[in-house]
Design a protein around this nucleic acid. Sequence first.
DNA 1: TTGTACGCGTTATCAC
DNA 2: GTGATAACGCGTACAA
Lengths: 338, 338
Amino acid sequence: MPDGASDPNPRRTGLREVAKAAGVSMMTVSRAMRGVDGVSESTRRRIADLAQQMGYVPDGNARALAATNSRLIGISLPNLFNDVFAGILDGMRRTLHGAGYSTVIDTTDYDPDRELDWLQRMTIWRPAAVVLTGRDHHPELAALVARAPMPVVEIWDAAADPIDLCVGLDHRAAGRDLGRHVASLGYRRPAFVGPPPGLDTRADKRVAGIAAAFDAALHRVATTGDSAFGAGAAGFARAMDHWPDVVFFHNDNTAFGGLMAAQKAGLDVPGDVGIAGFNALDLSAILPRPLTTMATPRRQIGQVAARHLLARLNGIAPPALTALPCTLVPGATTRRQD
Amino acid sequence: MPDGASDPNPRRTGLREVAKAAGVSMMTVSRAMRGVDGVSESTRRRIADLAQQMGYVPDGNARALAATNSRLIGISLPNLFNDVFAGILDGMRRTLHGAGYSTVIDTTDYDPDRELDWLQRMTIWRPAAVVLTGRDHHPELAALVARAPMPVVEIWDAAADPIDLCVGLDHRAAGRDLGRHVASLGYRRPAFVGPPPGLDTRADKRVAGIAAAFDAALHRVATTGDSAFGAGAAGFARAMDHWPDVVFFHNDNTAFGGLMAAQKAGLDVPGDVGIAGFNALDLSAILPRPLTTMATPRRQIGQVAARHLLARLNGIAPPALTALPCTLVPGATTRRQD
DNA sequence: TTGTACGCGTTATCAC
DNA sequence: GTGATAACGCGTACAA
């Protein structure tokens, strides 16, 4: 059998093969490939060319095993059907990937059990760090993290005493600022349409902030279903049973659903009722009447979180808690009352 | 130093520790944890309890290294700012995670170079399989896959001769069916608003299908910018320079942007001009006038792709090419012309 | 600047 | 049913 080319199981070319071809030891190749000091520029170039042409690909598993840490970062988000988390993720991933990390993503649908499950499975990969959404987790999560120490970044909700690092915004303050603006226009009977209390704790904080800006009680309507638009439309109809003069929504998409419901019901916005959203999603700006909303720095949150995390991984201590500012977008779905 | 509890670097409990505690060999623990044959039921239970209470977590890196394969699956998508890919991803991930696989996701922004880069980095982890979007890749991608043989699933675009497995829809047929419906209503001067030719090859196929349904030439307007809504609005304005009687859009979100632009321009839809979208996103159904569009089975594509992939990984040969059907949604943004 | 010895935590193989 | 041994591919520590 002289035909060596038809080897049925061609071992992938590893450090060993490259080393043999280059006539150096594996360590020299390893150093050259990683770009660490201790290799002459000439041999480094020679090895790099050879590795390239031999199709050498380092083995992340072996590397992680030997170095007892991997270049994998786990990210847990509630969902992806939402420009909010897609935006945060985008900001984060670009920075992380640029630094040579890969990201393992999962979604929880706001279920702490699923978050815990995911983290449990994630630890199998000995990730360099994990990113969690929000500050409210399963009771057992803290113990799990304590057993497998690694950097943890909690994003989106900036609140005191994070597990480790935290980058987000103050949802209560954001709700309060939006509420104050609307209240200052003369609205007196606010309602809120969004997820049921306890499901999305950030929404709960915003509701508390909005409520604090008004004298009258805020009537809260819980939505269900998986389409934000449909939920907003249905929620608006139910909210109107209580004759509010302004309806706040969980986000711009549900607010748009409400807007459509108002139109179908023959109600004028803002003539008959005011509407306010949250997040300043793309949709909100191109409406004939731009939505009154609060712009959230989603991509920036991702970028800052990633930068802080990289600093942390490089031994530099970033601030534990970072709250990024939001920007009020006055819009035209609310107007001065008299 | 009698205080053993304050070990500064407490090794994670591994097979070795559990084995010692159970008074058996590491191999027995390994077998017990994996659930393979060759361990008595009593010792298996004893070991499972012990591992649980000692907080043992298997090391995926070591496992992948020893078994020369990992339980990581790479997924490449154009972006996540779009319910289309979020839907496909959702359908896929649930199935894959249920089978014990983790997913590593990246987005390419329709750039074949970035797709190739990602795959290159991904192969570092020796993934069990990879999922790619579409059928058009970087010229060097085939060679890369050939060097690192693994199952490959191409999703979203069902076209002949896939690399390995393919699950999606026939974009040309979908465009043609939508075009025929609109043409049958009596429209004669179609326009299309979407990404520039060559960027999103699926969109190109749909355009070809739409064009084939009309006698007159289809005028194509290229959009730019990152907001689908804004792009649709701007594109619509430019499309109207050519006096079309119906404007097709890349998807429902851009179509909605066009709808808003029409409203601002004082044009009645469908009175003055017809509008058609694509994908039947949530948005399209709650508009006062539901959008004329084509419903695509996004979640189903993800589920079927995942199922076929799992079959493949278990040695069963699934069909190489699967095209899932789309459903026309007539809507009210087009109407019979006379 | 380069090389050697060893270990990272696990699984495959074969022996008992 | 269970155990001993040898990889898996690479990085750390130290020697040359």
